[in-house]
């Protein structure tokens, strides 16, 4: 991703999302955007485990 600064406004970040890294099998995946539909849905369903 190239992030450009807008000269006039002295602002940066317009249109730039957050990276969200998740483990998918044993692998990590850089961002949820690259998950297939089933894994996206699985990721969304994951609940945290308490002690």
């Amino acid at each position: 991703m190239t992030i450009k600064q807008t000269k006039k406004s002295e602002l940066v970040g317009e249109g730039v999302g957050f990276d969200r890294i998740r483990r998918i099998t044993g692998y990590l995946v850089g961002t949820v955007d690259r998950f297939n539909n089933a894994k996206r849905s699985e990721e969304k369903d994951r609940v945290k485990h308490g002690f």
Binding site: G13, V16, F18, D19, R20, I21, R22, R23, G26, R46
Partner: peptide, 20 residues
């Protein structure tokens, strides 16, 4: 073989890594 999953988010603009 095991591991612990937790959210690792990052804001590429300010460089913050953690939960967002």
């Amino acid at each position: 073989y095991g591991s612990i999953n937790h959210p690792v988010d990052r804001d590429p603009i300010c460089g913050y890594t953690g939960v967002i």
